[in-house]
């Protein structure tokens, strides 16, 4: 057993006693009851389980939770799909996903939302030229599997958010 304390969506949680071989995915879903983070493959292949990890240096990245021990998240700060909207106000990306009909069954949506949000935040710090935008989006989202949509409307939504505020995300 290991002791685990962490920040989830800005709230400090713990300490918890967790099994060394408990996955972060099971910690979130079974122990915290936070099932917005999905379980799809358990092998880091579909990334529906990815959460955002906010690093002390100010950078953020997504991390699959199904292949990582919960204990490895001790002291870390994560964001999950449950934490994007504040006081019922959706983020631009959440709104774009809805308005573009990006998802169908919605099971892969948490992963795409987290990945797309990390991309937006990265572009805000490191804008890219318009001409590379489609390729940048494609590279960022390619790890995520979706069986319903053919991905088109996810890419459209992310692009729409960026183009709607081009000065922020593009050079």
């Amino acid at each position: 057993m290991t002791t685990l304390s962490l920040s989830v969506n800005g709230r400090t949680l713990g300490p918890f006693e967790v099994r060394d071989d408990l996955t972060m995915n099971d910690f979130l879903r079974e122990q915290l009851g936070m099932t917005g983070t999905k379980f799809g493959c358990g092998a880091a292949q579909c990334l529906s389980c990815a959460v955002i990890v906010d690093m002390p240096d100010g950078s953020s990245h997504t991390n699959p939770t199904c292949v990582v021990p919960a204990a490895n998240f001790d002291g870390k700060a994560i964001r999950t799909i449950e934490g994007h909207a504040k006081d019922g106000v959706l983020t631009p990306l959440q709104t774009a996903f809805i308005e573009h009909f990006s998802f169908q069954c919605g099971y892969c949506t948490p992963g795409f939302l987290n990945e797309g949000q990390v991309l937006l935040e990265r572009l805000e710090k490191t804008p890219v030229p318009r001409a590379t935008l489609e390729a940048v989006i494609a590279e960022a989202l390619d790890g995520h599997l979706c069986r319903c949509t053919g991905y088109v409307k996810y890419h459209e939504a992310v692009r729409a958010v960026i183009l709607a505020d081009a000065g922020r995300y593009l050079v």
Binding site: D21, T23, G42, A43, A44, Q45, L47, V53, H61, T62, N63, P64, C66, V67, V68, P69, N72, E115, V118, L119, R122, E139, A140, D142, G143, H144, L145
Partner: peptide
Amino acid sequence: PPVFRGPDGMGLVSMRCNTCHQGANFDQGR
């Protein structure tokens, strides 16, 4: 998922090796 070498051999910015491959084998996720 498709991962690539990146500038330092540790992956592209959107998918770094050590996000999944952490300090030790984790047999739960094989």
